[in-house]
Design a binder for these strands. Structure first.
Lengths: 227, 227
DNA sequence: CGGGGGCTTGAGGCCACTCAACGATAGTGG
DNA sequence: CCACTATCGTTGAGTGGCCTCAAGCCCCCG
C-alpha cells in the first residue's frame, strides 16, 4: 500500500491556513496533498503517528477492531475534517479511505516545532481535539442508550447536516459501515431504512440506494428530541 | 467553602502543580478546595463553564440524559482526574459527586489568561483533553461491540487498575451507575457479577457488595484479550 | 422499629441478532 | 460487448441475549 515517504507525495506550496493552523508570526510549513483509492488504509492502529490529516475530498472512517473481527467505527471524516491528531507516539485507531479520497497532510514533527513557539497553533490543535471529544461523547449516548430507530434517525440527520443540509444526501459509506458506526447489524440498518421509507420519512433516489432524500425531517427529529 | 490563595512560588498542596498546569514563568493562580456531599451536582449540562476541576478525594460521574430519563455515564472521575475542561462556553455534561468528594477548582478565566502567555499551560490542557478522548474512544468500542460479560469484565479491570491495582476494589458507585456506564440494565450488571462470582473470578467481601476481590484476573482478561 | 434504598434473583417477553436466500449492480476479463 | 463474479442491499424466519416487571432480602438510618 501507500507508504509515506516524502517522495511519494507531490509537494505543493500551501500554508497552514488550510488546516486551520496558522498565525501571522509563523513560518510557512509545507503541506502535501495525497489521494487514496477506495478501501485503502491511511494509517494503522498502534503505528507511529507521523502525520496529521485533513480531508479535502472524499470520506474516511476511523475504527477499532476486536480480535474476532468486530469493528466499531468511531467517526466518519468528511471534507474539512481533521483526523490523525495524536498526543502519544502512535495512532489509536485505523483510518481508511471509504471512497477515493484526497487529503492534505502535514508532518507532525514540523507542526510540533511550530507549536513550540506559537501558542496559537497549539490552541488550534486543542480546539480540533475538543471538537472530536464532543462528537464522541454524543456518540456514547447514542451507542449506550438509544434504540435502533433512534440511532438510524440520528445518523441520517447527522449526515444530512454534514453533507448537504438540503435534505438530499449521497452516502459514501456502505450499510456495513453504518452498522459498525451505530453498533447495529447491517441487516437491522437496512430494515430500518426501509421502514423509514415506508413511513414516508425518506426516499431512495438512485439505483445504488445510497442516494437518499429526507422527506420528513420532523419525523426523524422526533426520534432525537428525546435528548 | 475554604479558599486558599497562594501568594508565593513555593510548590504547595494547592499550587497549579497539582492540576498539572504549571510552568516556571507563570504567575501563581489561585486554587480553591471544595467538598461536595453524596449525590450533589457539581455542574449541570449547558450551564456556563466557569471552573475546571480536579478530584482530590472521592468520585465523580459525568453523564448525559435523554428527555425520558435514560442516562449515559461518560466517565467516572477518581482522585487525580481532571474534569469540566471545556472549550466552548458551557459544560457538555452534568457532573455529580458519587460519594463525599473533595475537588480542587480553578477559575477557567484565570487559566485562559495564563494560557495566553504560556504555551506550556495550553499544552497541559491539550494533554488532559487527549487523555479524555482516548478513554472515551475505548468506551465507544465497549458500548458498541462488546456483550454484557465483556463489558462487566472490562469495568472490573478498569476499576481495579484505577483504584488499587491490588485486586481489592471498593467501588464508590451503585449498580445503577455501573449499568449506565456500560449501557446495560442494573439487573444485568447484578446478574453478571453473581455469575462471575460463581465462576470463581471474584468474590464479595463486605456486606454492602461494593467491596470486591478479584480472584482470577486471567478469567476476566480472557474477555478482554478480544481487542 | 418502621421505612427506604440498594442488591439479588426469577419469569416472561421483545428487540435486535444470526442464518439464509435472493435480486440488483458494478467491476473484470475474455 | 457480454458472461461471470464479487459485492452490496433487501427481506424473511427463527433464536437468543438482555430487557422489563416483580418479589424478596439485607442493611442502614431516622
Amino acid at each position: 500500500m501507500s507508504v509515506h515517504t516524502t517522495t511519494d507525495h507531490t509537494p505543493r506550496p500551501n500554508s497552514l491556513y488550510d488546516i486551520g493552523m496558522t498565525s501571522d508570526t509563523n513560518p510557512i510549513v509545507s503541506l502535501v496533498e495525497f489521494t487514496y483509492k477506495k478501501s485503502v488504509e491511511i494509517f494503522g492502529e498502534n503505528v507511529p503517528a507521523e502525520y496529521v490529516y485533513q480531508v479535502k475530498k472524499g470520506a474516511v472512517r476511523t475504527y477499532k477492531l476486536l480480535s474476532d473481527g468486530r469493528r466499531q467505527i468511531a467517526a466518519f471524516h468528511l471534507p474539512g475534517d481533521i483526523f490523525g491528531l495524536e498526543n502519544g507516539a502512535t495512532y489509536r485507531s485505523t483510518a481508511e479511505a471509504i471512497i477515493e479520497t484526497t487529503v492534505l497532510l502535514i508532518k507532525r514533527q514540523s507542526l510540533e516545532t511550530v507549536a513550540e513557539s506559537d501558542a496559537v497553533v497549539i490552541r488550534s490543535l486543542l480546539t480540533a481535539t475538543t471538537k472530536s471529544l464532543q462528537h464522541v461523547e454524543n456518540h456514547l449516548l447514542l451507542l449506550g442508550r438509544k434504540d435502533a430507530v433512534e440511532k438510524v434517525a440520528a445518523f441520517l440527520l447527522e449526515m444530512d447536516e454534514r453533507l448537504s443540509g438540503a435534505g438530499s444526501v449521497t452516502l459514501p459509506m456502505s450499510r456495513r459501515d453504518i452498522a459498525d458506526y451505530l453498533g447495529l447489524s447491517l441487516e437491522t440498518v437496512s430494515r430500518l431504512l426501509s421502514q423509514l421509507r415506508r413511513a414516508g420519512a425518506l426516499d431512495f433516489v438512485g439505483t445504488t440506494h445510497r442516494e437518499l432524500k429526507l422527506l420528513d425531517r420532523k419525523q426523524l427529529l422526533a426520534f432525537n428530541l428525546r435528548d
